[in-house]
């Protein structure tokens, strides 16, 4: 799946390129448990394989995350989505968009791809029910034009899951 907003994105700044190279190197030495970076020559888009943690609703399931980096990463958040089929989860839309505060308003340059991955896995692991968000159909319909989840104004009023 490609998102137009990502493909029309400006190239990485020098500082972003430098940072991502270091981040990738660190990932190769010390990848977060349960994740596998699929090697490509595209530094600006990472595709990461996620394995549901054992003992959770998603054990033995594998998903793919697509991480697109903006020109001014890490000052700006990366765009992180699941490539459909996305996990059935109350905070994950069927088009792969993820409702998680750290990907939007609460992003900090102190975070890394690795720490974001860990947060997403923890969100999956703490789920007690496999279902879509209540407004899935409406939201996904609104994204037909291929807009980015970063163009959504999210509400995070449920931190139980």
């Amino acid at each position: 799946m490609t998102s137009p907003s990502a493909s029309s994105r400006k190239a990485l700044s020098k500082i972003a390129t430098n940072r991502l190279q270091k981040e990738l190197m660190e990932w190769q030495v010390n990848p977060p448990a349960g994740f596998k970076h699929k090697v490509t020559d595209n530094l600006q888009r990472w595709v990461i394989e996620v394995n549901g943690a054992p003992g959770t609703l998603y054990s033995n399931e594998t998903f793919q995350l697509q991480v697109d980096f903006p020109e001014h990463y890490p000052m700006e958040a990366p765009q992180v989505i699941f490539i459909p089929p996305a996990p059935l989860h109350p905070h994950i839309y069927s088009n792969g968009h993820i409702c998680l505060d750290i990907l939007y308003d609460s992003w900090s340059p102190a975070m890394t791809v690795s720490s974001v991955c860990i947060s997403i896995l923890s969100m999956l692991s703490s789920s007690s029910t496999k279902q879509r968000p209540n407004d899935d159909e409406r939201y996904v319909k609104n994204c037909r034009n291929g807009r980015s989840p970063k163009e959504t104004r999210w509400w995070f009023h449920d931190d139980k899951v």
């Binding site: 409702c99 407004d135 939201y139 959504t152 009023h157």
Partner: peptide
């Protein structure tokens, strides 16, 4: 959690999904 598309900007008082 919820996306806010087409929802009035006033914050909701409850944590129901949408108005």
């Amino acid at each position: 959690m919820e996306n806010q598309d087409e929802i009035p900007v006033e914050p909701e008082t409850e944590s129901s999904t949408f108005i």
